[in-house]
Design a protein around this nucleic acid. Structure first.
Lengths: 226, 226
DNA sequence: GTCTATATCGGGATAGAC
DNA sequence: GTCTATCCCGATATAGAC
C-alpha cells in the first residue's frame, strides 16, 4: 500500500509538482496558510492556477504533501538516534523531537493541518480511512521503539501501547500549536515531564499489586476502540 | 463579566440578533454547518447578509452564540443533579453528561466550534484572552463539584485539579466529535471508564507511597502552566 | 499525460449608501 | 442598523496546445 501510485510514477512532471509544493511551502511560511491563495501559489511556482489543482485537489492537500515529504526525512533522521539507546524514554523522545523539529519553522502550518484533522469527515483526517497507511506507519514506529528497548512491558499492555503513544504524540502536537512561549519551551518541558511519567507508570503497572488497575485500563482501551 | 456588554444592551434590535441566531441554529441543524450559507441564514431570518455580519463577525461566531446560549441553560440543568450526590464521580459525570447532551442534536456543530478552538490566534479560542470568563466559569464548575464531594483530595493537587478536569472534558468533547458509533455509545463508555479511573487514581495518589509520584505530576503541571 | 488560459460559480466577508 | 453592491478566493469546468 502506501501512497497510491497505480499510474506510472510520472516522468519529469514530477518536478512541476515539487515546484508547486515548494512555492506553497515558501508562501505558507511567509504569510501563513489562510493568507496564501492558490493563485499566489500557482504564480509563485510559475504555473497556471489550474495546474495546481491538477496536482492537488485542495489547498489543504498541499499541507498534507508537505507533511508527507518531511515525514519521510524525519524517519531517516530519527532512525539512527533511536537505535543508539535501549532506554525507552530516549527512544520515544527521539521520535517526538524529530516531529517537533519538523514543524519548528512551520508552526503556523500545523494549524492548517490540524484544521483538516479536526473534521472527522475530511478524507485526510488522521483517523480516516484514507490515512490508514500513514497512521499505521506512525504506530509501527512506536512499536519498534518499544520492542527494541530494555523496558519490560506487561503482556496485556503490549498490543495497545504503540497506538497509545501515537495518540499521546498527537496530544503533544496539539499542545505545541498553542504554545506561544519562546522557542516553545513549555512543550519541551511537557515532553520531558510527561514522558518520564509515562515510562514510570508503565514500569509501575507491571508490579503485581497493580494488576487490577492495569486490567481496568486495558479494558477501557479495548472497549473504546471497538 | 461574561459576554461583553459595554455598550448599552441595545434597545429592540436585540430581537434581530436573536432572530439571526434562531435561523442559523435551525439551518445548521437541518443541513449542517458547512452546507448552510450566510445567505441562507440571512434570508431565513429575513435580513440582508450584511445585517448578519453586523451582529456576527463570522459564521463560526454564530456557533459560539449558540454555545453561549445553551451553556447557560445547561448550567441550570446540571446544578441540581450535581447537588444530589456527594460522590465525586457522579458529580463530575453530571457536568459531562449535560455537556454531551447539549450537543446531542448538534454534533456536527461541534466541528465548527472546534475549528474555532483549534486556531490559537482566534479570539474565541478556548485558551484565548477573550474567553477567559467562560473558561474560568467552566473551571469553577468543576471546583464546586470537587469541593462538595466526599472524596479527600491531596492538598498539593487541589489547586490544579479543577483545571485538569476541565481539560479532560475538552478531551472528551474531542473524542465525541469523532465518535461515529450509534448514539455515541463509545463516548459514554469512555466517560464511564475514564472517570472511574481518574477518581481511583486521585484516591491512590493520596497514599503515602505515592507521594513522590504525585509530586512529580504536580511539578509537571506547574512547569507547563507557567 | 501535462499544462495554459479563461470563464464561471458559490460563498464568506466588507464598504458605503441610506 | 440595515441593505445593496461588490470584492476576493477556493474550486470546477472547458477547450485546446504540446
Amino acid at each position: 500500500m502506501g501512497t497510491r501510485r497505480e499510474k506510472p510514477p510520472t516522468p519529469k512532471a514530477e518536478e512541476t509538482r515539487e515546484r508547486i509544493v515548494d512555492a506553497a511551502l515558501r508562501l505558507f511560511r511567509e504569510k501563513g496558510f489562510d493568507e496564501t491563495t492558490m493563485r499566489d501559489i500557482a504564480a509563485e511556482a510559475g504555473v497556471a492556477t489550474g495546474a495546481a489543482y491538477y496536482y492537488f485537489r485542495s489547498k489543504e492537500d498541499l499541507v498534507m504533501a508537505f507533511y508527507l515529504r518531511t515525514a519521510e526525512v524525519a524517519r531517516e533522521m530519527s532512525g539512527p538516534t533511536i537505535a543508539k539507546s535501549a532506554d525507552l524514554k530516549k527512544r520515544v523522545r527521539a521520535i517526538l523531537d524529530v516531529n517537533l523539529e519538523l514543524f519548528a519553522d512551520h508552526r503556523r502550518l500545523l494549524v492548517g493541518l490540524t484544521r483538516i484533522g479536526m473534521d472527522p469527515d475530511h478524507p485526510l483526517s488522521p483517523f480516516g480511512k484514507e490515512t490508514t497507511p500513514i497512521r499505521e506507519e506512525g504506530i509501527d514506529y512506536f512499536r519498534d521503539a518499544i520492542e527494541g528497548s530494555s523496558t519490560k512491558i506487561p503482556k496485556d499492555l503490549q498490543p495497545d501501547l504503540p497506538r497509545l503513544l501515537w495518540l499521546y504524540q498527537l496530544g503533544v502536537m496539539l499542545f505545541y500549536i498553542y504554545d506561544k512561549s519562546p522557542e516553545q519551551r513549555r512543550t519541551r518541558r511537557l515532553v520531558d515531564g510527561s514522558l518520564e511519567l509515562i515510562v514510570r507508570l508503565i514500569q509501575l503497572s507491571g508490579l503485581p499489586l497493580m494488576g487490577p488497575l492495569r486490567k481496568r485500563v486495558v479494558a477501557l482501551i479495548r472497549e473504546v476502540e471497538a
